[in-house]
Computed example of a mutant assay.
Amino acid sequence: MRVLIGGGSGFVGRELTRLLRDKGHEVTVISRQPGPGTITWGELESHGLPPCEGAVNLAGENLMNPLRWWNEGYKNDLFSSRIDTTKTLSQAIAASSSPPHSWVLVSGVACYKPSQTAEYTEDSEWTPFDLLSKLVKEWEASALLPENVAKTTKQVVIRPGAVLGRDGGAMKQMLLPFWLGLGGTLASGRQPFPWIHVSDLAGIIAQALEPAADAPPALPQVFNGVAPALNTNYEFTKELGRVLRRPTIFPVPGFVMNTLMGSERAVVLTQGQKVIPKRTLESGYQYTYPDLTSALKQIVGS
């Protein structure tokens, strides 16, 4: 299978590329910079979709970029980097004389309203309620294919939680306080913390790229890209401290997170949702890291 990956040079993209190539697939990355095995977004727009059986979009400005101050310019970049690239890819697929059999968008669980009691599956209805949920709404809408193309191209949306791994993702932000000797819960610690190991997210995407056995449904299939374990921030922090053999006695108040990160962005860490991968489990996907202990031990090398 030939797979085209938008944002394939990023943290998740590198893991997905490695997995697909290990399986014998051919990968082409869409990047802002030209290089071996890559095309640029400009080339995609001018030359159209290269021959491929699967397409994925992972492109987007890092929400947790510690070098970017939370302001209007950064918010605009978050929207444009996701929506514009997704539109470019979906339009290229729609215009192709031979569209791929699978088109996968990776968005996020920010569509689900934070709650300590509500449980969300892929079938849960939702409407935008803040900036990030509005982003997810517009992002996923930009991926929709015309009806005539959707008859042959399977559309999939995967909504991951915090992505954990050795080389990046949410672990950079979560580990820093521990290395400074300030490890502790964020805000109350009672907020749910939906997460997934990067290897499992790559595995779910790879499975979603497989051709449909029957005619694909008109609307995208949604899969929650989270581990089946339902953990709170407190549980995550305590387990991370245990694996690192470091104390977890210095909680970070919510107002500090809001001040440092901006309240609209800090909500990702100070609040959370109980997200259940119901359809992901029903699909038969077997998690490599279904629980915190196995995931964190692999990440920190214990």
Rank of each mutant, 00 (worst) to 15 (best):
C52T: 09
L67M: 15
R159D: 01
Q273M: 07
L175T: 13
M64A: 15
V104M: 04
K172R: 15
Q273E: 03
L135C: 09
W69S: 13
V268T: 03
D291M: 07
T288W: 10
R279L: 06
R21Q: 11
P34Q: 02
R32P: 01
V56E: 07
P251V: 02
T288N: 14
Q207P: 08
L58K: 00
R21A: 09
L135R: 14
N71Y: 14
G184K: 10
E61N: 11
N62Q: 13
V3Q: 04
L4V: 02
G8T: 02
S142A: 15
I158M: 01
D167Y: 10
N76Q: 13
S283R: 06
M174L: 13
L182C: 14
L144E: 05
G181N: 13
E122L: 08
T293F: 01
R242N: 14
G168M: 03
T88D: 05
A187F: 06
T288V: 14
V267L: 07
K75V: 13
L296N: 02
H197Q: 01
V222G: 07
A187H: 12
D22I: 04
L219K: 13
Q271V: 00
L176V: 14
G37P: 01
G13W: 03
L78C: 15
G203D: 05
L296E: 02
A59K: 07
P50S: 08
P277F: 12
A215C: 00
P290N: 08
L296T: 05
H197V: 10
